[in-house]
């Protein structure tokens, strides 16, 4: 809707709180990150060092590793997490008996403190007494009896990603909320035509929540780019830096008081995120974002 002259004040009033908070808690800190990323700031003194932090970072194997790992995480978000959430949302949208219970249950991991969930999954994957190995051994894969899932270079990332799938409930809830707004009229019409449930899902529900699906993909990709807690709590980037991700890397740099370099890593991360965000918007080309 084109804004009328006499409503400009209203409009400003409506966007002002968000802009003020955004300026205070995002713009200022990011400018601060940007400026200090060109210094060797250690918390007390800072000297201008030009691009040194950036060149050093890109020469570190573990930092490059963190970037590639993050890209894997993003890919998983778009190709596995959100599609799975869509499937579950579509199925629950049928509202068959007990669907509300399932919705709540699937959301539970979201509300449990991540420290506790990480401890559980670390115990599940444990090589000595973990349930995963016990089950694999039970169904005949005896090679895996003492397999150290999180402590093995080949399986650590896969185990982390497998664990992260228990959080699909987040995106399921967004898409499910969107289906709530779909008018029953559409389905009534389809029922008269004798459409099967699968056809209704495919031809009515799915197209109507397409833009929400894209929104979820963007959210999931960005969330996985700033992935911190699961990795920090379960592997802290190990073994041998093989599961390193950007935010854990940044956190480590800050803990060892290389604040300038940590902030440079933060700037790089924001830049990668901005590129991802812009290209996703182009790629998905949803009318929602025009």
């Amino acid at each position: 809707m084109q804004i009328k002259k006499d409503e400009v004040v209203w409009l400003l009033l409506f966007i002002a709180p968000a802009i003020i908070l955004f300026f205070l808690f995002f713009i200022i800190p990011i400018l601060f990150l940007f400026v200090t990323s060109f210094t060797n700031w250690d918390g007390i003194s800072a000297e201008f060092v030009g691009l040194e932090n950036y060149t050093k970072l890109f020469n570190k194997k573990s930092f490059v590793r963190a970037i590639t790992n993050n890209l894997y995480w993003c890919l998983t978000a778009a190709l596995i997490t959100v599609p799975l959430a869509l499937i579950i949302a579509l199925l629950l949208a049928h509202r068959s008996r007990g669907w509300k219970v399932f919705r709540t249950v699937l959301f539970i991991p979201q509300v449990v403190s991540s420290a506790a969930i990480a401890m559980l999954w670390a115990a599940m994957f444990n090589a000595e007494y973990g349930l995963v190995n016990f089950l694999l051994d039970y169904i005949g894969f005896s090679d895996y009896k003492n397999h150290n899932w999180l402590g093995n270079i080949r399986t650590a990332n896969a185990a982390l990603i497998g664990f992260s799938l228990c959080y699909v409930g987040y995106f399921m809830v967004i898409m499910l909320a969107k289906t709530a707004g779909i008018s029953e009229d559409y389905y009534d019409a389809a029922n008269i035509d004798g459409a099967s449930q699968f056809q209704k899902d495919l031809h009515i529900t799915a197209p109507l929540i397409k833009s929400t699906f894209f929104l979820c993909i963007i959210l999931a990709v960005i969330f996985n780019l700033r992935q911190f807690e699961y990795v920090y709590l379960m592997t802290a980037g190990g073994p041998a830096n093989k599961t390193q991700v950007l935010v854990v890397y940044i956190w480590n740099e800050l803990s060892v008081q290389r604040l300038g370099r940590g902030n440079a890593a933060g700037v790089i991360m924001i830049a990668i995120g901005a590129i991802l965000l812009l290209s996703l918007r182009k790629l998905l080309k949803s009318e929602t974002y025009n």
Binding site: S62, N152, A236, G237, G238, P239, A240, S255, V256, R258
Partner: peptide, 20 residues
Amino acid sequence: SLPIVSEFPQALSALALGEV
């Protein structure tokens, strides 16, 4: 040196897994 101490677990796990 804090950076060296912080890298130790990574170096140790790499050693334990035969990576280095």
